[in-house]
């Protein structure tokens, strides 16, 4: 009875983390498709991530309800919900950035294309490592720290690439109008925000892990 309940919440948590991972993959493919002018495919990805986001919200609510209703993990409940809620920010950010791409349709400059793809890849890697850290938090607490180091590493990488894009956009001569330079800066910042969100969760996870070590 007790273990059946545990199993159902466990699989919900696993599914939730899986969704974060999938969101990262969709985000990376979507941005790549945008920069390759495959706009139709990009729009499909946007829809996919929207669907994933609302599904994840539903799972998160279900976990929250079960944890409180069935009085599970009273000592770690707050931390687990805190973790799931901040993880939600990651998926929200990924969705938001894709919607902005879809609405604002930023110009693709060949000079910046590779940098944008590299930025996307670094940001998504920080999300992947975050998911590994979160999984470890539930099952193998001693492994959390290793993954957190990687989250911080990729966030830092993303920051560097973001700065590089901004410098190229503003210092280079290939973009004539200031509004377009600002537009590039805006999108570099948004993509990098995904890694920032991942790092925020990582910081929390660090504390939760210290609290959980027996």
């Amino acid at each position: 009875m007790l273990f059946n309940r545990a199993k159902s919440i466990e699989s919900s948590i696993d599914k939730y983390l899986e969704n974060i991972l999938t969101a990262g993959l969709i985000f990376e493919s979507g941005i790549k498709e945008y920069f390759e002018n495959k706009f139709e495919k990009f729009e499909e990805r946007t829809k996919e991530i929207q669907k994933l986001e609302s599904e994840s919200d539903e799972i998160r609510r279900e976990i929250k309800y079960k944890l409180y209703k069935e009085l599970l993990i009273p000592d770690a409940r707050g931390d687990v919900l805190g973790l799931l809620e901040t993880l939600d920010n990651v998926i929200d950010t990924a969705e938001m950035v894709m919607i902005r791409f879809s609405i604002e349709k930023p110009t693709i400059w060949p000079e910046l294309k590779d940098d944008f793809l590299e930025l996307t890849s670094a940001s998504v890697k920080s999300v992947f490592e975050l998911v590994s850290a979160s999984r470890a938090f539930f099952r193998e607490i001693t492994k959390v720290a290793d993954s957190l180091i990687q989250v911080h590493f990729w966030e830092h990488e993303a920051d560097k690439i973001e700065e590089r894009i901004m410098r190229k956009a503003f210092e280079g001569t290939f973009i004539a109008e200031l509004s377009q330079k600002v537009h590039m800066r805006y999108f570099a910042e948004r993509i990098s925000m995904l890694a920032d969100e991942a790092e925020d969760v990582a910081d929390r996870l660090d504390i939760y892990t210290i609290k959980r070590s027996i």
């Binding site: 273990f3 919440i9 599970l72 993990i73 687990v80 539930f138 607490i141």
Partner: peptide, 18 residues
């Protein structure tokens, strides 16, 4: 003893709670 059991068995937080 218990620390090493927890390290090797990798029990999920929720199950561990039960």
């Amino acid at each position: 003893i218990i620390s090493s059991i927890l390290k090797h068995w990798k029990i999920h937080l929720i199950r561990l709670d039960g």
